[in-house]
């Protein structure tokens, strides 16, 4: 049953993503991205990942606010998207080749819902008594892999620093 629900949501997500990319109006394409993100959050909830569902909802709201606030207030709302045929055809052929190659790899993947790594068994069995955290995801992030999280915090800091520096009043010539 869960798989059919996820299947349906995925079909709608793909439709919304195509609508977001093909729409002529920037506002409606950004709203379509919002639809993709919220449906993704529901899919995460069905995949038994409540932590990620919460983060996805809130991050989606902030993404929408940033995109609308920064892009829509420009004087261009609609865009004409006349593309040359040859580069477009080349890109589509490239994507098609990628899809054909990936179909083989996807066929070799195990069935959805049976795969579980050995380290996950260790975390689930010993995680509570070794860290005391009932939320095993939190235990993995902040105890077993705290060094990873330190690196991720550095990436976050660098990205934000980059945005602030780019938008300084005067870029250094």
């Amino acid at each position: 049953m869960t798989e059919y629900i996820i299947f349906t949501f995925l079909v709608f997500m793909i439709l919304a993503a195509v609508a977001a990319l093909e729409s002529k109006d920037l506002l409606s394409s950004i709203i379509s991205i919002g639809a993709v993100g919220f449906m993704l959050s529901v899919v995460f909830l069905y995949l038994k990942a409540p932590d990620i569902a919460i983060v996805q909802v809130v991050v989606e709201i902030l993404t929408l606010i940033i995109l609308i606030r920064v892009t829509i207030s420009r004087d261009i709302r609609t865009i004409e998207d006349t593309r040359n045929f040859m580069p477009f055809a080349k890109n589509v052929i490239l994507l098609f080749v990628l899809a054909v190659l990936a179909a083989r790899a996807i066929g070799l993947l195990p069935e959805v819902g049976v795969n579980l790594s050995k380290v996950a068994q260790y975390y689930l069995l010993r995680g509570f008594e070794e860290t005391g955290a009932a939320n095993i995801v939190s235990a993995v992030i902040l105890d077993y892999r705290a060094y990873d999280t330190l690196g991720e915090a550095t990436i976050l800091f660098t990205a934000i620093l980059g945005a602030v520096v780019i938008l300084r009043r005067k870029a250094k010539e």
Partner: peptide, 28 residues
């Protein structure tokens, strides 16, 4: 239970995706 390890990795990746989106918007 489901596997906690990919969830832990994706949790940080989502927030970093937001920061990188903001960086791209600033560049744009």
């Amino acid at each position: 239970s489901v596997d906690p390890l990919p969830q832990a990795l994706v949790l940080t990746s989502i927030v970093i995706g937001l920061a990188v989106t903001a960086l791209m918007v600033a560049l744009a």
